[in-house]
Design a binder for these strands. Structure first.
Length: 577
RNA sequence: GGUCCCGUGGUGCAGUUUGGAGUGCACGCCGGCCUGUCAAGCCGGAGGUCGCGGGUUCAAAUCCCGUCGGGACCGCCA
């Protein structure tokens, strides 16, 4: 039907008679016998000069055949890639009419997302969605090529699997042939890729759909795509290298830029400096250690095991209500309180608590934070994890740049702790999954009589972070039965429970499991940041709203009683608490 | 489970603080004029359950309560 795409015509095409197909983006009529039609396809716009356009309307689907010619002097449009030329002597064939679109497709205004999603098929025609989905396709393609080139084998793992109650909530699917039994949709291909290692695949990857029934966010959907990979006979170093190569390929494909070496930071350093295990390193405003400054304080609120602060440049201008608001937020995030101090011209501190501090403490505070006139100091005192957490959130609140600023700051966070805390029975709670290999230097601590020692055990687990978003994580896995048994016993999982939950994996490991390690990262998140979007819905063709609904298809929906009957299901009344 | 923000012709907003007739702006839509525009221009027109329900009041888009929908975040996401 067509010889060319709209957005590709240039001066070098002048004289050719071409056919283009697309949608009527705009119509400019100048009387009965002259009108300009901007025709749009996924490549862009071309102006077509037609003899009368009264029967053409917005978004009509047309085929236009005409001669590419130079625009008359003085009528070129520098804002258009095709602005030097136009189609003349046009023959217009209407392929389909269209109702006026439910919203305007030019991007002069931000249209309500519900309206866009309810008519996503129209929304997809916008430059923004066309660009984002094509960025996504480029990323997928370059990741595939990079993994292929590194000797990884693409293997598809099942979508209908057994439910394992660990981790995120499963989506479940009732079984028709086994009424009362359910499949689960995979949260990740984790166990299958480890089985692939036992199966001698050596290097596996998959662009895998993963599903988790947890609350949605700007960076979280029920279903999302991961580059999932696992390799045998490799160390952590090699995994970081494989993934770095793949990510670099995607970045190169989209931006044309070379990524270079991805910096590393230990989990401990990330928490202490940024109050997060996924630090946004596009900006400073790091957490400042103040515990020694107030080691001997008489101020009760500062008699805590950890005191840290933030220096907000220019923050002395914050109004009292803004400071009260920050204090409220800090409390909601789990702080006992938030101490603020405005640094005045004379070096004095303007703060409700200044009178409780000694001259030495104030002097130490100013020196340690480097505070100068006009700054604001925000200080939290509490247990160390809480202090870091709250200040980390405040730091983001006050300093985080827009998504399109600050470049792409990738970061490997390494040496995660094996356990994040102890439960009420002093059993450690795993920070990752229970198959994560402890750091070789820390294995001896697993035999310690003091449960507190468990929290010091580092694991061979690592995260890839981009601009403060966790892109993904991975680990070296436990491949030996004796270490795995020790781990289960530490976690308070009995042999019977372990067998019931992970029996097929443990069985497999008895038949010759190679040392292996892997990684998985979220493609939606990577694409969103590469596309300059704050929200992964903008890079997903048909996403769901925060409540998990699809305004286009109206999923989730009720099903026919006959379907329930066939599945052996009966519904309970909806609970309204 | 929680905190906060938003909801006004098809779209995007203003109006809400301080109650007074569905008032205004821009875009779009429909009709007319217009032979070089390109966010075309000019003239005319249509289009509204101010999310929904209740309350206060002589009077509610506006104040109060509830509810629904959307968004951001905390919890959650091994």
């Amino acid at each position: 039907m067509r010889t060319d795409h709209c957005g590709t015509l240039r001066a070098s095409d002048i004289g050719r008679r071409v056919s283009v197909c697309g949608w009527v983006a705009r119509r400019r009529e100048h009387g009965e016998h002259l009108a300009f039609i901007d025709l749009r396809d996924h490549t862009g716009l071309i102006q077509c000069v037609v003899d009368g356009a009264h029967d053409l309307r917005s978004e009509y689907v047309v085929r236009i055949t005409g001669e590419v010619r130079s625009r008359p002097e003085g009528t070129r449009n520098d804002n258009l890639a095709t602005g030097e030329v136009e189609l003349g002597e046009c023959e217009v064939e209407i392929l389909n009419s269209a109702e006026p679109p439910p919203f305007q497709l030019d991007e002069r205004v931000e249209v309500d997302e519900m309206v866009r999603l309810a008519h996503r098929y129209v929304d997809l025609r916008t430059d923004r969605m066309q660009r984002n989905l094509r960025v996504r396709a480029k990323v997928n393609g370059s990741l595939r090529r990079a993994m292929d080139d590194q000797g990884f084998v693409e293997i598809e793992t099942p979508m209908l699997i057994a439910s394992t109650p660990e981790g995120a909530r499963d989506f479940v699917v009732p079984s028709r042939l086994s009424p009362g039994s359910f499949y689960a949709l995979p949260q990740s291909p984790q166990l299958f890729k480890q089985l692939c290692m036992v199966g001698g695949i050596d290097r596996y990857y998959q662009i895998a759909r993963c599903l988790r029934d947890e609350d949605l966010r700007a960076d979280r959907q029920f279903e999302f795509m991961q580059l999932d990979a696992e390799a045998s006979f490799v160390s952590q170093e090699e995994v970081l290298s494989f993934i770095s190569v793949a990510v670099a390929a995607a970045v190169r494909e989209v931006t044309g830029e070379e990524l270079g070496d991805v910096p590393r930071m230990t989990w401990h350093e990330a928490r202490e400096r940024f109050g997060s295990d996924k630090p946004d390193t596009r900006f400073g405003m790091e957490l400042i250690e103040l515990t020694p400054v107030f080691a001997a304080t008489e101020f009760n609120a500062f008699k805590a095991s950890c005191i840290k602060g933030l220096r907000v440049e220019g923050g002395a201008e914050f109004t009292r209500s803004r400071l009260d608001d920050l204090t409220d937020r800090a409390k909601r995030w789990g702080a006992k309180g938030l101490v603020w101090m405005r640094v005045r011209a004379d070096g004095e501190l303007d703060s409700p608590v200044a009178k409780f501090l000694s001259a030495d403490e104030i002097a130490g505070l100013v020196v340690t934070t480097g505070a100068v006139e006009g700054d604001l100091l925000l200080i939290v005192a509490d247990e160390r994890p809480a202090v870091c957490h709250v200040l980390g959130l405040l730091r983001l609140e006050l300093g985080r740049p827009p998504v399109t600023e600050g470049g792409l700051q990738f970061l490997w966070v390494v040496d995660f702790p094996l356990f994040e805390a102890l439960d009420d029975d002093n059993n450690p709670i795993p920070a990752h999954h229970p198959f994560t290999m402890p750091h070789a230097d820390d294995v001896h601590l697993l035999d310690s009589a003091d449960p507190q020692d468990f929290l010091k055990v580092r694991s061979q687990a690592y995260d890839l972070v981009l601009n403060g978003w966790e892109l993904g994580s991975g680990s070296v896995r436990i491949h030996r039965g004796d270490i795995q048994k020790r781990m289960f016993s530490l976690l308070g999982i009995t042999d019977d429970e372990a067998q019931e939950k992970f029996g097929f994996l443990l069985d497999a490991f008895r038949f010759g499991a190679p040392p292996h390690a892997g990684f998985a990262f979220g493609i939606d998140r990577l694409v969103a940041l590469l596309a300059g979007e704050e929200n992964i819905r903008e890079v997903i063709a048909f996403p769901k709203t925060q409540s998990g609904h699809d305004p286009l298809t109206h999923a989730p929906s009720t099903i026919d009683p006959a379907q329930l009957e066939e599945l052996g299901l009966r519904l309970l009344p909806v609970r309204k608490d």
